[in-house]
Design a protein around this nucleic acid. Sequence first.
DNA 1: GCAAAAGTGTTCGTCTTACACCCATGT
DNA 2: ACATGGGTGTAAGACGAACACTTTTGC
Lengths: 240, 240
Amino acid sequence: MTRTDLTREADAPARRADGDIRVAVSTVIFTLRRPRGDERAAVVLPLVRRTRDPFEGQWALPGGWLDATEGLDAAASRTLAETTGLSPAYLEQLYAFGAVDRSPSRVVSIVYWALVREDETRTEPQENVDWFDAESLPDLAFDHNAIVDYALWRLRNKVGYSRIAHGLLPDVFTLAELREVYESILGRRLDPANFRRQVESSDTLIPTDDFRTGSHRPARLYRYDREVELADRGPLDIRH
Amino acid sequence: MTRTDLTREADAPARRADGDIRVAVSTVIFTLRRPRGDERAAVVLPLVRRTRDPFEGQWALPGGWLDATEGLDAAASRTLAETTGLSPAYLEQLYAFGAVDRSPSRVVSIVYWALVREDETRTEPQENVDWFDAESLPDLAFDHNAIVDYALWRLRNKVGYSRIAHGLLPDVFTLAELREVYESILGRRLDPANFRRQVESSDTLIPTDDFRTGSHRPARLYRYDREVELADRGPLDIRH
DNA sequence: GCAAAAGTGTTCGTCTTACACCCATGT
DNA sequence: ACATGGGTGTAAGACGAACACTTTTGC
């Protein structure tokens, strides 16, 4: 089921009288794309090409209308899956955008941001969906350029005090792979020795007995400790 | 103009068909109330007593319906002024709450949080408005208890890395007064010597040539440096 | 003079950073 | 053997907590 037309923010499922306010849900979903060479991985995100006015032909964030029978989180998951086929490991509300002139009709967009592992993005290619480097986006529909900028800022901020890098990695990984995630997001090199000590002293990783072999000295594989409470969203995290 | 009835989340200005989603705006607005003795100041907030179902007679956050002709920030300012007469110095979006069962009808609430100085709260007393200690609230309407808990968490978090204490103080103040604000919010004593050095090295305060006299050694008065960029909300702060 | 708050100095332990160095493996 | 990334050691500087100490006022 491919319903890329769900990004039509200005066309309601059922037309309403003027003066009405409609609620949309959109998601900025990031993953890391590793280039062929040894260059640093790039932060990329999927966009959906609009097939109707306004902004027909331009790229926009995946999203859709909030359904009266679903909560906001559920709407974000559903519209993201319907437009791109993705099911993110990490999903969090970003901000509510509701300027009067952000769309020809009156739309309040509840925007989420999310992370997926690169291997999860290998779904069947969707029509009108493509991936873009977060650093060099084209002109997007609505206020979506500003929204992506804000989501990038939140991502870089949060990676410093939270363990969201988890959302970009498989179950087990080496410390070098974890460090590469941080380096790609922060855009700078980190000292491998100091990085190791920091994550080890944080007690959020469990070392396994397995090693990643294939090149030089084998590296120990780690997994995240599911028992560790994140508590980076305060009382909102009480939802298990 | 006292329109406390604007908190009626389940009564739209114009009734609509079932299945519709309405957008409300509410605000958690804090101030500090200094008790008579030398006890620490308490974090208090105003609530509005509901005059209609649902939750008739219970206390709720001040708020109202989003108007189609105004942005979200403007709606928060307007509904707060209409229900409580307050105009906060600091106002920031907190979170969008949209669980299906949070109200008998379908309401998405964009919630803001704000700070006012205590001297600004001396407006003419409004009907059905009262102030409550944030630590010991009664059972509120809707999910407003959880919302206040989250706002308190954000306040305590943000006071650590931002200069929001500004919003609770007059133009000029002593370092002891600034420290009292931090102590009240964080709920613990701070070392005066270390506190002084921290704020001085942060370069956000401008010392004046005036002193607060009246008790013991006079204390120098400071004011906030308006030139210092806050940048604690990332790209969203570009709004001057 | 004395109490009390304003303001300064100093020490100590922890965390960050930089970088030297050893270890284990594929080629 | 040697190149390379995995992993450990260590010293310098930054920073925060604790607290002794000096200064300046009201009484």
